[in-house]
């Protein structure tokens, strides 16, 4: 138990490897926090599956610095993101924006859920009306012969 607690404590105090170099950081902690937030929303365009905050690529570093320059210059987070989207397209955002092109991406799962719900509802409503088919003539005869009252031997 004690060991487990130590492991949990160690894990909760560890930090993920961060690519941001000390010389990149802004002096103002509030601005630096915003820069980190923006960096985490931007894809590294040369590595494709990392944020620029995580990436050690040179271009990612330059993008982090540009993000900080723009934030220091008075840009809002949204303005910085828009600047990047204007240059690199929606691709640069890790969380795609909602627009005509991404509508299916955002609402596709909901659409599938609705279709599934409709199909399930239809199936659940049906069975009451479905019973075994009526016996035909020969079947009725056979049944009668089997269930005929016993005669005394």
């Amino acid at each position: 138990m004690k060991h487990l607690l130590i492991i949990i404590a160690a894990l909760s105090f560890s930090f993920g490897a961060v690519a941001v170099q000390p010389d990149e950081r802004l002096a103002d902690p509030a601005l630096e926090l915003r820069a980190r937030e923006v960096s985490k929303a931007l894809r590294c365009v040369v590595c494709q599956n990392e944020t620029i905050d995580d990436s050690s690529a040179e271009l990612a570093r330059d993008m982090r610095i540009l993000v900080r320059d723009r934030i220091s210059g008075g840009d809002s987070n949204e303005q910085v993101l828009s600047f990047m989207v204007q240059r690199y397209g929606d691709f640069v955002l890790l969380k795609p924006r909602m627009n005509a092109e991404t509508l299916l991406l955002w609402f596709g799962p909901l659409l599938v859920l609705i279709i599934g719900a409709i199909m399930t509802a239809q199936r659940l409503r049906k069975p009451a009306s479905v019973g075994p088919a009526a016996l035909n003539e020969s079947e009725a005869k056979e049944l009668k012969s089997l269930t005929r009252p016993e005669t005394r031997p």
Binding site: V45, V46, E58, D62, M63, L66, R87, Y88
Partner: peptide, 13 residues
Amino acid sequence: PRSVAAISLGVTG
């Protein structure tokens, strides 16, 4: 030297 123009142009390589 610091990719200011490159990023503004959306250059990746």
